[in-house]
């Protein structure tokens, strides 16, 4: 994948402008200020009052804030990737090269997540500050980091797919942010609401099941579960990976067809692609 020429070109383009270091610097400064504020609140100016439980809360809060920020930043980098190529009129030429449609999509997904991964990596020293005060173990940090990475990849993949399937960057951005809102807000509110209702009516297992399922689709809840901050099914993260992984596969297949309708010509009853408008 590292030999993907599109990926290398995108890295070069994205990282050579002044925007990349400014975004990284601004993000690290913001997160550092936030971390020091949380730590100060934790110790309340007296180092003898250190409580490992509160330090764990700092770690959790930091992870959740980072997940939310990264979640809402990802579409900004990914939502215009393919539709932007189309609007810039570079897509037709790209499609006449031997690059596979999957290679094009993968290159776009990985390049749009590169800066966000960099943002996660540069905040690792801030997490290490939390270790000083106890309460979080390295295994948790690895699990949280891996989950954040996976979620960013999922959001980027869905955004790139929307960007391929719809014709305009504006629509692609709307759909991508709607997807992020579904993941971060809607599933949380609905899942929590259904569980509250189920608590009032304990016999209604159906509602409780749906509530639990919706919550397992919420990355913030799964992240809190990984840190044992909330209770839920032990393998909720597996549901999360399965559902969103499956959604990515479906949308990627549709995107491959959109880019090169010939690739799926063996499928019966495949819809006719409107090639005239697309390229």
């Amino acid at each position: 994948m590292i030999r993907n020429p599109l990926l290398l070109k995108e890295f070069r383009q994205r990282m050579r402008t002044a925007r990349a270091p400014i975004v990284v610097f601004g993000y690290v400064c913001g997160m550092a200020l936030f971390t020091f504020f949380l730590l100060y609140e934790n110790v309340q100016g007296q180092l003898t009052l250190l409580l490992p439980q509160r330090s764990e809360q700092v770690f959790l809060t930091l992870s959740l804030v980072q997940m939310t920020v990264a979640g809402f930043l990802t579409p900004a980098f990914a939502a215009g990737s393919i539709s932007g190529e189309r609007e810039r009129r570079t897509l037709a030429v790209l499609l006449t090269t031997p690059l596979s449609p999957f290679g094009i999509l993968a290159g776009k997904i990985l390049s749009s997540t590169a800066l966000l991964v960099l943002l996660l990596v540069v905040t690792l020293p801030l997490y290490s500050l939390v270790f000083l005060f106890g309460g979080a173990v390295p295994g948790e940090v690895v699990a949280v980091f891996a989950f954040q990475l996976f979620t960013i990849l999922v959001i980027a993949a869905l955004s790139v797919c929307w960007s391929t399937l719809v014709l305009r960057s504006g629509w692609s951005t709307v759909l991508s942010y709607a997807t992020v809102a579904w993941m971060l807000v809607f599933t949380g509110v609905m899942g929590y609401g259904l569980q509250l209702v189920a608590q009032r009516y304990p016999l209604d297992q159906f509602l409780a099941g749906w509530g639990s399922f919706l919550l397992s689709l919420n990355p913030l809840w799964v992240l809190a579960l990984l840190e044992a901050a909330v209770t839920g099914p032990p393998h909720a993260w597996a549901w999360f990976c399965l559902v969103y992984g499956g959604l990515c596969v479906i949308l990627m297949t549709a995107s491959v067809w959109r880019l090169r309708p010939q690739v799926l010509r063996f499928l019966p009853l495949r819809p006719e692609a409107d090639e005239r408008d697309y390229q």
Partner: peptide
């Protein structure tokens, strides 16, 4: 083939 479309664009910053 080498294909040049009727209306084409170029990439920025390369």
């Amino acid at each position: 083939i080498g294909y040049m479309p009727d209306s084409f664009g170029v990439y920025d910053d390369i």
